[in-house]
Design a protein around this nucleic acid. Structure first.
Lengths: 233, 233
DNA sequence: ACCTCACAACTGGCATGTTAGTTGACAGGT
DNA sequence: ACCTGTCAACTAACATGCCAGTTGTGAGGT
């Protein structure tokens, strides 16, 4: 096994306690696959690289462990957790449950301003597709969903939903951007928006459900494409 | 279950690392209101009482802080978090979304064995009502919901659902046990069971929704009954 | 009596020393 | 060549020392 120097991360520019900064830096690195699933995280190396002592790093790793983003083997090693397709299916189920409930609620009680915000987001997505800005589209896509979750009137629902589907979000990074898929995604978003515009809760629910199931169907094949990123079972 | 000694807590009888034991002990104490909302948690006192050093206690408190069960004021104090009715409403929304999705799924694809398990649980509940064992009924009630969540085939859904509605679970402890309410709750459970028996997803969804909304309607008045347990805003 | 401000005591955050469990390499026997 | 038992090196877990920010208190001024 060849040891590799992992991509570098930094805690500069973040605020909060050292422990929180380390946590956010590591979490970000794990979520965007800077740290590959299965990669070993050495406390000593992290301390040296970030210029902090072991205390804040330990706290950060403990939190990541509680969230399932790292696997700690006592007295031995800490690794970035590998994917489990069952876990991903589970998270998809949870995410769909919450997003559909939010979509139904928003479809019923949306305001014109909320509709305008969603519409603006979709026009931004169209621009990003034209420019083939995959990363930008990825973020706009997330923003679209977070807008709907936020329109429930519950300020933390978006964050909680993200937190409960971290593995899905991470696995999503592995999906290769395909030209045609972006336009399809856009069409699905438009269908959701139109249903919300018409205050048609049932149509909105179906459109969102269809959209979310496109994602999981694209995640399923990843287990064969990246077997080393998945737990052997 | 956390063992208690004169209002204090102990980590004896738990396994895992010291940090995990401390975490579970404190979490249990917070969830069952052994520690009142707003109570100050002193690291030094906890260390002395549990006979451990500050490291595992710090890790436990950090985790509880991330979960929103404690509020840490840097360089000052750590307190058991107070309730926020908006947060409780938010958790209820999330919980309902997940439980309804689970109920629908289970109603469609239940097995006879699963039906038998639910039925056995309800007969147990009837016994506990006869004996006026409020605590036992409380736990059987939780078990009923966890059974349904588990029957989705996703082993972690029950735990995730608990985790996302910790404040609701805690607030629920404040509801005074009333004789009649137990029987009503039991009736609602029976309605859910019957709909699942008949594989009537729509009826099961409505029955569960009605049942869950009974809970939130009983939680709402708590803000006036225990103003000191709620955040002032 | 009341406000102000400085200080002492206490807190949590961070660094570092110490302990104990795991692991892999290697020597020695078969 | 192949097991096998031992041990050294490494790791996370825990204990403890130190520091900086917060806060209550009380002396002194108005």
């Amino acid at each position: 096994m060849v040891t590799r120097t992992e991509g570098l991360i930094s805690i500069d520019g973040l605020d909060g306690s050292l422990a929180q900064r380390v946590y956010r830096a590591l979490r970000g690195g794990i979520l965007d696959l800077t740290f590959n699933p299965g990669a070993v995280l050495r406390k000593g190396a992290i301390c040296e690289q970030l210029g902090v002592s072991r205390s804040p790093v330990s706290e950060a790793l403990a939190r990541l462990s509680a969230e399932g983003l790292v696997d700690v083997i006592p007295q031995s090693t800490t690794r970035v957790s590998r994917f489990s397709m069952n876990e991903i299916r589970e998270e998809s189920f949870l995410r769909e449950a919450v997003e559909l409930a939010a979509t139904v609620r928003v479809a019923v009680e949306r305001t014109d301003d909320q509709l305008a915000q969603l519409s603006r987001n979709l026009r931004l997505q169209a621009l990003l597709i034209e420019d083939r800005d995959f990363q930008g589209f990825f973020e706009a896509d997330e923003a679209f969903h977070d807008l709907i979750l936020g329109f429930t009137g519950f300020p933390n629902v978006a964050a909680v939903t993200t937190q409960m589907s971290l593995q899905v979000r991470r696995a999503r990074m592995l999906i290769l951007p395909e030209e045609g898929r972006l336009a399809e995604t856009q069409d699905e978003h438009v269908a959701v928006l139109n249903a919300i515009r018409d205050r048609d809760a049932d149509a909105a629910c179906h459109a969102m459900s269809h959209h979310l199931r496109q994602l999981i169907s694209r995640v399923e094949p990843l287990e064969r494409m990246h077997p080393d990123y998945f737990r052997s079972h």
